[in-house]
């Protein structure tokens, strides 16, 4: 491992200043479960690590009156997994967090880290996008907010500029009569996902008709992607088995997978189809059981 500077600022302002001064290769350090491994493997050679350990205000989950969540970027996955505020209306996010690594990893890893590492397979991204989440980015003076789906620009790449820090994730309230589900498949337990699919379905009042839907695919393109044609197909239709199968088949078409050591592109398409179908079936079965009542 090559030598690097290590800084421990005590405010967001100082953290951004430190990141800016160290230039483009500086990285913010939260749990370190991705960064330190990549540094050891020589894949990442940052000039400086800026620890967020002493920066206040980045480690919390707040639930607003309307049911929306504001999650500090340095909130640990284990705290998201077990948070009553998350579990209340956003259980699929808690579940997605619970599928990352081992307990020991989740005890260190943070949600902001999972997003900033920008792996196409990041498990929290698809479900957060399905919920319609946005991210808050600070440069120490000003903040900007953008939809999470616009945050990623490629494998390991985000819109963050030198001197910018992801500070919070905002998750809107779960719509009435909505059901969200994230499914992933893996080669062994505690593996990163081969394919992950998150689906949010909003049902019209008193019916099985889909009012709105979001379908998000992970590990199947350079970034987590929405599947707009799937969403379009769902809208205004009754969610029956035939529709689930058609949307599943369309998800396989909308995917842009590659062959790699984890799976072939062809198999990833199969998984996209199966998981999409299953996430829709989960929504249907939730509705049949009385929509969570």
């Amino acid at each position: 491992m090559e030598a690097f500077d290590y800084m421990r600022p005590t405010s967001v302002v100082d953290a951004c200043a430190a990141l800016r001064e160290a230039g483009g290769t500086a990285r913010a350090l939260a749990g370190g479960t991705d960064i330190l491994v990549q540094m050891r493997e020589g894949k990442l050679r940052p000039a400086a690590l800026v620890s967020l350990r002493d920066v206040p205000g980045l480690r919390s989950v707040r639930r607003a009156q309307d049911g929306g969540l504001t999650i500090g970027a340095a909130t640990r996955l284990i705290d998201i997994e077990t948070s009553p505020d998350v579990l209340r209306d956003h259980a699929a996010l808690a579940e997605a967090a619970s599928w990352i690594g081992s307990v020991q990893v989740r005890d260190r890893a943070t949600i902001g880290g999972n997003l900033c590492n920008a792996a196409p397979s990041a498990d929290t991204a698809p479900i957060l996008i399905a919920y319609g989440s946005s991210v808050t980015i600070s440069d120490g003076r000003d903040e900007r907010t953008l939809p999470l789906e616009d945050f990623f620009t490629g494998p390991g790449e985000t819109v963050l500029e030198p001197g910018e820090l992801l500070t919070a994730i905002s998750v809107p309230p779960a719509p009435a009569r909505s059901h969200a589900k994230y499914y992933k498949t893996f080669r062994s337990a505690m593996d990163c996902c081969t394919v992950g699919v998150a689906v949010l379905v909003v049902f019209a009042p008193d019916s099985r008709v889909v009012e709105d839907a979001r379908v998000v695919l992970g590990a199947i393109a350079p970034t987590p992607i929405r599947a707009p044609r799937c969403e379009e197909m769902l809208r205004g239709k009754e969610l029956d088995t035939a529709l689930m199968a058609s949307v599943g088949a369309l998800a396989a078409e909308e995917a842009r997978p590659i062959d790699d050591v984890r799976a072939s592109a062809e198999y990833r398409r199969v998984l996209a189809e199966v998981l999409t179908k299953r996430a829709l079936a989960a929504a249907d079965s939730w509705l049949q059981k009385g929509a969570g009542a």
Binding site: E41, S188, A189, V261
Partner: peptide
Amino acid sequence: LISEEGRIVNDRFLDYKIPNIGD
């Protein structure tokens, strides 16, 4: 062990999967 052109490409536990406690 997966090789491409004689080079092993899964030379770490991230991609060389062994059964773990969950499996």
